[in-house]
Design a protein around this nucleic acid. Structure first.
Lengths: 193, 193, 193, 193
DNA sequence: TATGAATGAGGCTTCATTCAT
DNA sequence: AATGAATGAAGCCTCATTCAT
């Protein structure tokens, strides 16, 4: 049963709801105006809350942003690791990475009309995980021996850019096979170098 | 010759100089703070001019930015077209495109600490030219038959992301061959689809 | 004895304790920040209590301040009256007044880094008592006939200013004799006018 | 002739006028609310100027305050030094000091309903000058040998406190002779210790 | 009575822009 | 055309105070 909350419980609920309200508003505002242009006021205005309330939850715009990134990365990174970790072939490794990322972006929905700076710790950690997974895949013979650093950058660039296509309506599966074929073929070419 | 300029001529000179002064300052400031965070004041402060003078040349920060983008695209786009147009093989086409772009970015020097929104008309026109060149290359048999739109996006994503590596110090030639091998191999893979 | 308190008694105790907690915090905060700069929040923060609780005891910062002054004046004024009332000579009258005041200030401890406005009713009452005592001393021939009002002001000014010296470490007895000698000699000079 | 100002001159004039406008407003506001309670907004409101204009002249409330103190001390301190320096007797020394100070305070006009903290560098310098002058007077035999430090404090305390009386309407000469007689007599008493 | 989150007024400051000179 | 002071809107944030629990 979901009834009868203690007073404290009810307050906790409200707090969580308000926090979510602010995060939702921030997501929207950042997507519309970009992080740098967005103001705390913009976020508050996208909310039924009073201005002071914002500061009961976050100290600054940066902190909300961090919370959003963390939330997102916390959802995405485990999925990616799982997808890549379970791969039994190069194709699997590449395709599952792209597919997972594209679906995640589709689910998020908003078309980012600005690309955020990618230097939040959580995001950087995601990059690092990718590099590690690539290196591990090379080590167990799944991928040919290539520069893991450059491949990381190449995969990310491709993924971010193509994700925009997907969000603009392209089919996930089509873009995934395009990207996968491109990289797989490319890996073949690279390994001969 | 250092001959006398007519008063009108002299003024013309000053006008051009002031415009350049402002554009130089803006380039610097945008690179340091990012477009959204930069303010008109910041630009003026990076200048020996008075605040009012700014408005004799530009109506807003956006307009300066546009002017910078145009100036840049006007330099880069012809180079890219020429590089791609002169290609006699797929490898040439891809490699020259990357190489030209990387060198251009290296020459600009500033490490972008923000990725700008890529929707300025001049930049979009650059994308469009890439697509056209790809299509033309496909038509004349230089490139295999692939989705020109997706390839455009893929190339740009790769180029922008790897350019950061180059600006961080990676060798242009090394990154160029990496990217070229990747794409060339990938095109082989794609054409079999 | 640690016997059981009735619920009401216990509550009474808590109430008194909370009130004292707030007053203690306020004393500290006022001493550190000065009255005008201190905020209710500052006081609450120096307390384990919740913000709302403050308002169960005091309506405003001013009211706490008043309470502090009253508390202080309630301690000091009787001591001063007693000291002056028991005087049997001019020297006694003056010296005992200074000595009592200096010791009181030393006991309080905090070096006031701001001089408060001296217009609280309790403090004004203290001034008035001083004037009355001076007048009475004049009447009973203890002090020469001088302007009681000006002497009141002079004594207070001297007392407050020298108290700072004492709080900064000067010896109470030394400062007391200095002040007493000064005033006693001065009274001699004045009475000849 | 006071006519025909150059444009630059006129602008300079306005700037000076605005600065004075702000200083006047600040003087008033500080006197009414005290330094700590006064806000920049309060000062602006006491002015026909726009809020932003304040910041063209001063960076903060503190800076205006400093400017006021400096202005004041720059006027008062030379007068005091001159008054004390020209003294040919103890009575002269003491009386002229009080008299000068009281007149200065009367001219300023506003009844301070708060005593500012006395730690501005300019004010502290004024204290120091007093101590030096006292020591010099002792050295040339004008004043008896007493603790110059304590006498400085005593004189200031008396002066500040009695100045309030003067500002409340007491006659300068009457208060001056009271204070002088008090101190002179006191010095006699002290020298015998 | 105690709690502490919500509120919105109001303080501080910077900004884009205007306009008299 | 160049200057730079004036303007007031608007951003950031803290505060006193209320009120549901």
């Amino acid at each position: 049963m979901d009834t009868k909350l203690s007073p404290a419980g009810r307050r906790e609920l409200t707090k969580t709801q308000n926090r979510e309200t602010i995060l939702d508003a921030a997501r929207l505002v950042f997507a519309q105006l970009g992080f740098a242009s967005a103001t705390v006021r913009d976020i508050i205005r996208a909310t039924p809350l009073a201005s002071g309330t914002f500061y009961n939850y976050f100290k600054s715009k940066e902190q909300v942003y961090q919370a959003l990134r963390d939330e997102e990365a916390l959802l995405l990174r485990p999925r990616l690791r799982h997808a890549r970790g379970g791969a039994t072939s190069a194709e699997d490794f590449i395709a599952e990475g792209f597919r997972t990322f594209f679906w995640f972006e589709v689910e998020k929905g908003e078309t980012g009309n600005e690309r955020f700076r990618l230097d939040s710790p959580e995001v950087l950690a995601g990059f690092d995980e990718l590099r590690q997974d690539i290196q591990a895949a090379i080590d167990r013979g799944l991928l040919p021996v290539v520069d893991a650093g450059l491949l990381t950058v190449a995969l990310s660039g491709l993924a971010f850019e193509l994700a925009e296509e997907v969000k603009r309506g392209a089919e996930v599966e089509k873009v995934t096979s395009f990207a996968t074929a491109l990289i797989l073929g490319g890996l073949g070419g690279l390994s001969k170098t």
